Computed example of a mutant assay.
Amino acid sequence: MNGLELLVLGRTLMKIGGSALPIAGGPSLPASVRSVLVDIAQHPDSSISEITARTGFPQSHVSASIARLIESGDVVSDADPGDRRRTRVKVNPKAAGGMLVITDTPVDEAVADALPDTSALPEVLAALETLSRHLNPSHQQR
């Protein structure tokens, strides 16, 4: 595999991941912003640096996504009472009822849909688990 092939594969994996994400905040949000929203829902009262570490997105993207989500009313922020310099974010409890359904959605179906031959699904899922264990920032923190 060369660098270009890896970039193309990465883009394909991002599309598959985006299709497997819950429709958090509605389908009009880009998958990368939905990813930040899902992380916030799963980890309320997180700081921007904590979200950055878990998602692997650049801090600038996380900050821009949060600003967009605050503007749309999907999340709210406040100062951390223990450290007023730190901002915490959480899903807005007043967000449109039922709009945000967070589940731990497996990627199996999305990966199967992307494969020309689903008999390879177990092998591909195992390979993704291996890659995640070694390269996913949230797994490296453990």
Rank of each mutant, 00 (worst) to 15 (best):
G3D: 13
V89I: 12
E71P: 00
R68N: 14
K94H: 12
D78S: 15
I40T: 04
L4G: 07
D108H: 00
A31D: 13
G10M: 01
I102L: 08
R88D: 09
I40W: 06
D108C: 00
H134W: 14
D74Q: 00
N136M: 10
V36P: 11
S19H: 07
T105I: 01
T103Y: 02
E5L: 11
V91S: 06
T55A: 04
R86K: 13
I102D: 02
D104L: 02
D78E: 15
S19N: 11
L21Q: 09
V62A: 09
S49Q: 08
A20E: 02
V124F: 03
G18W: 02
G10Q: 03
D104V: 01
S49Y: 03
T118V: 12
S46V: 05
S63P: 08
T105V: 07
V62S: 06
L29H: 07
I23C: 08
L115I: 01
R34D: 12
E50W: 02
G26C: 03
A96P: 10
R142M: 13
R85Q: 14
S47A: 05
K15E: 15
L121G: 01
G3Y: 10
L13C: 12
G82K: 03
H43M: 02
A112I: 02
Q140R: 15
D78T: 11
Q140M: 13
V76E: 10
G56S: 09
T118C: 06
H61C: 11
H139V: 10
E129D: 15
P22N: 10
L100Y: 06
V111W: 02
P81A: 13
A120I: 01
D39R: 00
A120Y: 13
A110C: 04
H139T: 07
D104H: 09
L13R: 00
S47M: 05
G26I: 04
M14H: 10
K90F: 15
A110R: 04
T55P: 01
Q42F: 01
P106I: 06
D108A: 13
P106M: 04
S28E: 14
A79G: 13
D117A: 10
S35V: 00
S49T: 07
P137R: 01
A79N: 13
P22T: 12
R88C: 14
L9P: 00
G18N: 06
P137H: 02
N92R: 05
I70Y: 08
G97M: 13
V101K: 00
V111N: 01
I51L: 14
G18E: 08
R68P: 05
V107Q: 04
E123N: 09
G18Y: 03
L135P: 00
T52G: 10
K90S: 15
G82I: 10
V36I: 11
R84Y: 13
G17E: 04
V89L: 02
P30L: 15
S19C: 08
L7R: 03
L9Y: 01
K94G: 11
T55K: 04
L135Q: 07
D80R: 01
K15C: 14
R142T: 14
M99L: 15
H61W: 08
L4V: 09
E50D: 11
A127Y: 06
G98Y: 06
A53N: 09
I51V: 12
H61G: 09
T52I: 03
R86C: 08
R86F: 04
G10L: 07
S60K: 14
A120H: 12
S49N: 09
S47T: 13
P93Y: 11
